[in-house]
Design a protein around this nucleic acid. Structure first.
Length: 840
DNA sequence: CAGTGAGCGAGCTTCCGCTTGACTT
């Protein structure tokens, strides 16, 4: 019996393939890349032809060890990673690390996970394509060089811990530039004229017909004049034009289009879409969710065909092949589709069901007939008035086709009124004849403002990045997290402003006028650049325009393609880039700057005459009053929410120094108002109370402060459910997620089975704590690794910081083997808290 | 959760793309 080892990238895939291949083959997964550049600058020997120094990261050691063991036992190792640049490199790294001999190694690829495709692949093995591997090495090393040389420049010139990179910096640029466009946008008003006509029907009733004037009217006076004219005019149907209209279904989902549609239709953030999709993939419901291909396998097309014939009939069927048009697509996988089209609904969580349904519909629709519509345009003239006429439009579905199951959504322009995407009954026009004269019910002219450019949502940013060929399906969601974690971009939470608009209405009784209000400029849930993002972007744009160029990635991809084709040497490509890039970095690093990057001098303070400036401080945007060289030290104040370095005025800056201030006394103790890391607060009797957004900390009265203090006290009492005299450190509290136990600074869940937490005894509480401690014990090892991330420890309370830092440090030195990984902020914080309690 | 920030200074931060876990007080 032959001993075969097959290595794929994903464990879920390994499981499926194992079933096809039987016991002669053992199928294992590499879990993606198994090697990466060393974290230190030694990761690349620039002097020596960019020789990369690869190492197996700590969290891959176990997997590599297992693969080594199995490879030793196997007579043939089949490297079956994906058929793209990264996949080829994974195979190469595997063959290097596992020390595979050429005669025992075979490289295979398949595009769909079916028995026949896999057997076919096994029958057609090839060798590793070293040119493709070199293209990947060039990509990897270039990204490292850019990221690890630019970031330190930012630490030095702007603020520590910032980052720059080929993908993220361009993503930030898109958002910064959009925000500037919005800031410079001046809305222009014009009047939109809509008439409601009365169309008589045969039964004697009348039906209303809405029609819009062919042009907008620029001014109020002109709009009024036109309406006055209309009062005495006749309206005649001049023309009725019917034209057929076809609509085609959208192609099957890729990562990017799935993220967009799930955001629009289900309201999912891109990270959630990916999590739910991963679940569906692992349970075998859908194909791989990180793909840029719109291709469907023959199997999927066949199953779709059967389903359509079975459920809807032959006239709904139309087999289609879609081709990718996105830049830089590598198409190592299929489109995202259900593994079995016959399964129309699944069991699982509500989110899983919804996402599956969306994928199923999109896939089936892609193999369905086009929809046939009829569009009607009615031209209604105003007798005796030239240049103006009314237009009524209607759309009727003649044959629904794919619309029977799926309608693609489109981003509505922000602030725009909802436009129905497709015909509804309201779009049906009543029967009419050319030459018919129509009376009107009313004609109105409504003031409308031009709309500012829309801010990006997570999903629309992904679409833009994909369009520019920047980033990959596996990185869209992480990139969006990164730029938010660095503080370059935030999700907006402002409702926007309101404005008044006018409306003139003509009815049978004559001309009337009214005003109304509308809100505009909301940025809720949309991506907004911060001061830090703006300053970093402007800095990079000024000194590293090449890397910031929207075409940088696309251009460099072309040279990677050249490497893959064997026409260029990867070291040459890197040298070409680096000999220009590196000196640029060095010169910017050594550049003497008169002011801090992004600093704005506002002028001199009216009261003190001291100079005032705004800039990025160590903790974010800050105003400074005074000269650091002067005898008297400068004063600092943090900018408030909604203020920005770019727009802050001298007066606003001056006001910021009015805090902290004493508002008065309450219960014989001073009431102080200040502004901290988390916004404005009231300090009284050793306690802090947040000041809500609706109050201005500069103007808030003592009475309001007292109200807030009392409200906080009441909330604190309600928060407290129970405590025990014997154990003052243990409390039952009411939190955001319901009641929980707080004990020695750690929190513990109360299971849902407990009906009334008030009735819990001390023993029961300790029991619950013990149970949960046990559960976390196993995770400590992983946590210790994250503890190496000391920087986050610093953000802990100042008072506790010193002891905590020491504790965290101890953990790291003890477990030196577990080197720091890119631990997430949340994880790191938690670990620090635990380091105190978990002494081993 | 909280009021910091130009005396010293060591050592830290950081990239993009492959993959999955562990995690919600």
């Amino acid at each position: 019996m032959q001993n075969n080892l097959v290595i794929v990238e994903s464990p879920a895939k390994a499981k499926t393939i194992q079933k096809f291949l039987g016991t002669d083959f053992k199928v294992l997964s590499s879990y993606g890349h198994i090697r990466d550049l060393n974290k230190k600058h030694a990761g690349i020997d620039v002097e020596n032809d960019f020789t990369p120094n690869y190492e197996v990261p700590a969290d891959k050691k176990n997997i590599v060890a297992e693969l080594k063991r199995e490879a030793k036992k196997a007579s043939i190792v089949w490297l079956a990673s994906d058929e793209d640049r990264e996949g080829e490199a994974i195979s190469w790294h595997l063959s290097e690390v596992l020390k595979l001999k050429p005669e025992q190694t075979k490289r295979i690829v398949f595009h769909e996970i079916t028995k026949s495709a896999i057997l076919d692949a096994i029958n057609n093995p090839r060798e590793i394509d070293i040119n493709l591997v070199d293209a990947q090495q060039a990509r990897r090393i270039l990204d490292r060089l850019v990221g690890f040389e630019l970031s330190p420049v930012l630490w030095k010139k702007v603020k520590p811990s910032l980052s720059a990179g080929r993908v993220q910096s361009v993503a930030v640029r898109l958002i910064v530039e959009r925000e500037r466009e919005i800031r410079n946008f001046k809305p222009e008003a014009s009047y939109r004229v809509v008439a409601v006509f009365k169309v008589p029907e045969e039964n004697g009733r009348t039906v209303e017909l809405k029609a819009e004037l062919n042009k907008r009217i620029p001014t109020y006076a002109q709009a009024k004049e036109l309406l006055e004219h209309c009062a005495s005019k006749l309206f005649t149907i001049k023309d009725i034009k019917k034209s057929p209209l076809k609509k085609n279904p959208a192609p099957p989902f890729t990562t990017s289009t799935l993220q967009q549609e799930a955001a629009r239709k289900l309201g999912f953030p891109v990270a959630r879409t990916m999590m739910v999709a991963q679940k569906l993939y692992e349970s075998g419901r859908i194909t791989y969710m990180r793909t840029d291909s719109v291709n469907l396998s023959g199997l999927a097309i066949n199953a779709s065909k059967e389903t359509i014939l079975d459920k809807m009939g032959e006239k709904y069927l139309k087999i289609r092949k879609f081709t990718t048009k996105s830049k830089g697509a590598q198409e190592a996988h299929e489109a995202i589709r259900p593994t079995d089209m016959h399964t129309t609904a699944i069991t699982g969580s509500a989110q899983e069901k919804k996402l599956y349904d969306l994928i199923w519909k999109r896939t089936i629709a892609s193999q369905m007939a086009e929809a046939q519509l009829e569009k009607t345009n009615v031209h209604i003239s105003i007798d005796g008035v030239d240049g103006y006429h009314f237009v009524a439009t209607g759309e009727v579905i003649k044959f629904d086709g794919f619309l029977k199951v799926y309608r693609e959504s489109f981003d509505n322009h922000q602030d725009e009124e909802e436009v129905p995407e497709l015909p509804t009954d309201a779009n049906m026009l009543p029967p009419m004849k050319v030459g018919e004269v129509l009376p009107f019910a009313n004609i109105s002219a409504t003031e409308r403002f031009t709309l500012q450019p829309p801010r990006y949502t997570e999903a629309s940013l992904v679409r833009k990045l994909e369009e520019l060929g920047i980033g990959r399906p596996s990185t869209y969601a992480p990139t969006i997290s990164t730029i938010q974690n660095r503080g370059y971009v935030v999700r907006g939470d402002s409702e926007g402003e309101t404005r008044v608009f006018k409306r003139i209405v003509l009815t049978g009784d004559g001309l009337g006028e009214e005003t109304d209000t509308e809100s505009f400029g909301s940025n809720k849930g949309r991506l907004v650049s911060t001061d830090i993002g703006t300053v970093v972007n402007d800095f990079l744009m000024a000194y590293f325009p090449n890397v910031m160029n929207y075409n940088f990635t696309a251009d460099i991809e072309l040279t990677f393609d050249e490497i893959a084709a064997g026409n260029k040497k990867w070291t040459e490509v890197l040298r070409n880039f680096y000999t220009k890039f590196h000196p640029n970095v060095v010169s910017v690093e050594n550049m003497k700057m008169e002011h801090r990057v992004g600093e704005r001098i506002l002028g001199n303070d009216a009261e003190t005459g001291l100079p005032i400036s705004v800039k990025i401080g160590r903790y974010g945007p800050v105003v400074q009053m005074g000269d650091p060289d002067a005898e008297e030290k400068p004063r600092f104040a943090q900018l408030q929410k909604g203020q920005s370095i770019e727009t802050l005025t001298l007066e606003e800056a001056h006001d910021l120094f009015k805090l902290p201030r004493i508002a008065g006394e309450y219960e014989d103790l001073t009431v102080k108002i200040g502004v901290g890391r988390f916004g404005p607060y009231i300090y009284h009797h050793g306690k802090y109370v947040s000041i809500p957004k609706t109050e201005d900390p500069l103007k808030i009265s003592l009475d309001t402060c007292i109200e807030l203090i009392e409200a906080k006290r009441k909330a604190d009492i309600e928060k407290h459910i129970k405590s025990f005299d014997e154990e003052p450190e243990l409390e039952i509290l009411n939190g955001r997620w319901g009641p929980y136990i707080s004990y020695q600074k750690s929190n513990y869940k109360i299971p849902k089975s407990v009906e009334d937490p008030k009735l819990l005894s001390l023993e029961e509480c300790l029991e619950l704590i013990k149970k949960q401690e046990k559960g976390t014990a196993g995770k400590r090892k992983a946590n210790a690794r994250a503890a190496a991330n000391k920087k986050k420890a610093k953000t802990a309370t100042k008072k506790k910081a010193t002891t905590k830092k020491a504790a965290a440090k101890k953990t790291t030195t003890k477990k030196t083997a577990a080197k720091k990984t890119a631990a997430k902020k949340v994880v790191a914080k938690k670990v620090v808290a635990k380091a105190d309690t978990t002494k081993e």
